[in-house]
Amino acid sequence: MTDKSVEAPQNPKRRWLWIGLALALLVAIVLLLFDTEDTIDVRATTTAPPPPVVSVVTVVPQTVRARISAFAEVRPRWDAELRSAISGRIIAIHEAALAGAKVDRGDPLFSIESAPYESAVAAAAMEHEQAKLALLRAQNNVTVARRQFDRDGVEPPNDLALNLPQLRIAEKTVAAAEARLNAVRTELAQADVVAPFSGFVTQRFASLGQTVAPGDALVHLSDDRQFELVAEFSQADWALLNHPISGAKAELIHRTGVPLGEAQVRHGGGFLDQNTRQVRLFLDVASPDGRVLAGDFLKVRLLGRQIADTLTLPESTLSRAGYVWLIGDNDQLHRISPDILFRNEGTITISAPEGTGPWRVAKTPLASFLPGQRVTPRSDEG
């Protein structure tokens, strides 16, 4: 069967017509987009932008008393690891020897078996008595010899005739026996180990029944009655203090800013620390009230000498580059490299620049500040 339907050929003119219409539509859309595109209105002006607003503090030169501070660790004056002085078995450990115990001077800590030392004391005492008896005999022999020569009316030919060498030997024998007796008595006394000073037992090393030898560690004892601190200052800060410094009082301040009392300067100066090249100051804290604890890290602050022509500024006035920015009478900026004398409680004290005050200082300088730049100062004394 033959398919009689024949597809009608496309009209080339109509196809080109549709292509032309599509191109025309595309061009129209592009023109419309360019015509409706947002533009930025630019207006030419000859008015300069206003100067930036700067918070300033106004200060005048004044005479201040230097306040020098440094941090130091609180250390007990006496801090010892008590060791056995004799050999023997530990037969008793007292409550005061337990770790954490608070002891007073003379409190018993350990008892070491003392029988061998009691025997040594008895033997030494007997030797001492024998030596004294020999001395009495030697003295008697000298007396008899002298009387004999006196009766005969002649002079003794030498010391030997009077038994004087034997007397001197007997005297030295007594002295040696007495020293030996004192030595063994000391050893016997060391069988009872007592606290040499008041403090806290921070660690115990020996146990009940243990046999110890001379030099073996027993306990570690830390003083709680007297503390000391070693503070270090730069040579520039050291020059700001009143000298001589010995006997001066120093404030002790906790890291939180709470005052904890005073310390007294014992010694200071005379040499530099080999590692830090700073001057060391030694202070004492006698009879602490419980707020000052060994091992704490405290601020030590001392009053120094009077310094004239200074400016005291907030620390924020010092830029990262180390400059202080001043605002002149024409509201223009100029910078100085300050001579910082000391710092105290969020402030810096510097030498006043040349000229007469008062001075207006930028409270919070910006990194974009330039010398000669005009600003709008705003007073901020807070």
Rank of each mutant, 00 (worst) to 15 (best):
D3Y: 11
A92L: 05
F197G: 03
F200V: 14
P156L: 11
I29T: 02
T47K: 03
A206Q: 05
P365A: 03
Q130S: 13
S351Q: 12
W18Y: 15
T36H: 06
F197C: 04
G328P: 02
I245Q: 09
R75N: 03
F197L: 00
V174K: 07
P76D: 06
S198M: 00
L326M: 11
Q278L: 12
L302F: 08
A191V: 00
G346D: 06
L333Q: 02
T63P: 01
R83A: 12
G106V: 04
R151F: 12
V74T: 03
V292Q: 11
A22C: 12
E118G: 14
D309H: 15
K363L: 15
A24Y: 03
L281E: 04
I340S: 05
L32C: 05
G290P: 14
V30E: 01
E127K: 12
S55N: 12
N275A: 07
I29H: 07
G199C: 05
E171L: 03
A123V: 13
E354W: 02
L98F: 13
V56L: 00
G322N: 08
D339E: 10
L167R: 08
S337G: 06
A206C: 09
L160C: 04
Q130E: 14
A362F: 02
Q278H: 13
G270L: 10
V265D: 11
W78S: 07
A131Q: 11
K299I: 09
W359R: 07
F369E: 00
V54D: 01
S207M: 09
H243P: 07
R305C: 08
R374G: 03
A24F: 04
D152H: 12
T364H: 12
D284S: 11
E178C: 07
N182G: 02
V300I: 08
A195H: 01
G357C: 04
S55A: 06
T2S: 14
Q226P: 02
P338V: 06
V184G: 06
R225W: 01
A206N: 04
S84W: 00
V121S: 10
A191C: 14
E345M: 09
I19R: 10
L221H: 09
K299E: 15
I40W: 00
H334S: 06
P214V: 07
L283V: 02
L366I: 04
S246E: 15
P214N: 09
A294V: 09
L260T: 03
L82H: 01
P165D: 10
E37P: 00
P244F: 06
I348W: 01
R378C: 04
P371D: 06
A101C: 09
V59N: 00
F205Y: 14
L25C: 10
E95R: 04
T143M: 10
V74C: 09
V174N: 02
L208A: 10
D38R: 10
P116N: 07
L82Y: 00
D38K: 08
L181Y: 05
D38M: 04
R67Q: 07
T63E: 05
N11G: 10
V258M: 13
V56A: 01
R43T: 11
L370H: 05
L181A: 02
G328C: 03
E354G: 08
F282E: 11
L311C: 04
T356V: 10
R151N: 14
E113K: 05
D224T: 15
N344Y: 11
R137Q: 15
V57W: 00
H220Q: 13
